[in-house]
Design a protein around this nucleic acid. Sequence first.
DNA 1: GTCACGATTTGT
DNA 2: CAAATCGTGACG
Length: 196
Amino acid sequence: MTRPARVPRLPEGLVLGPDFFARDTLQVARDLIGKLLVRGDRWGRLVEVEAYRGPDDLAAHSSRGLTPRTRVMYGPPGHAYVYLVYGMHHCLNFVCRPEGMPEAILVRALEPGPGVGRCSGPGLVCRALDVDRSLNGAPLVAPELYVLDDGYRPAAVHQAPRIGVDYSGDWKDRPWRFLMESPHLSKRLPKTAPRR
DNA sequence: GTCACGATTTGT
DNA sequence: CAAATCGTGACG
């Protein structure tokens, strides 16, 4: 008798569509914390994301206006914006707001699902889930790449300044990094001030 | 065409 | 702290 092959069981839940991503980008970022990012038969839970609000936000790629690279950011919500940084790492974003408003959310860290490697950092997320620029502009739909609400709700969502945007003047101080407590964050939660 | 630089990661 | 490594955007 043949034993049934061990098929990877996918989590169940609701796939988040364009309506979810068309809302205010900061609200979407907050709401994304605790959701599942699914890539084929691999997944991880979103524990850290960052909001980028163009074209005013000098930390956002869209602050330079519509260019070949930022075209996807200007496109419809619920699509992937994937780019290459430092010539070697990919970064995955979710396009937010209605078409014409170039805003997006960067995926910074996941709590890895079964068999998934370390996901603490934007480049590592893409490496672990095999995300590259072939997915740039792709709609967030099953089974390729999508976000799932499995009913999990984080106890608290924290905010902190964004990482690696020191070039953006005052915009670097905006607390547009959203995260939940997790051992899988790309950077530790800002320590509470020591009592003295 | 040329050039400076980056929404990072890793090793010293 | 510094290297790796190449696409992008600015300039001309």
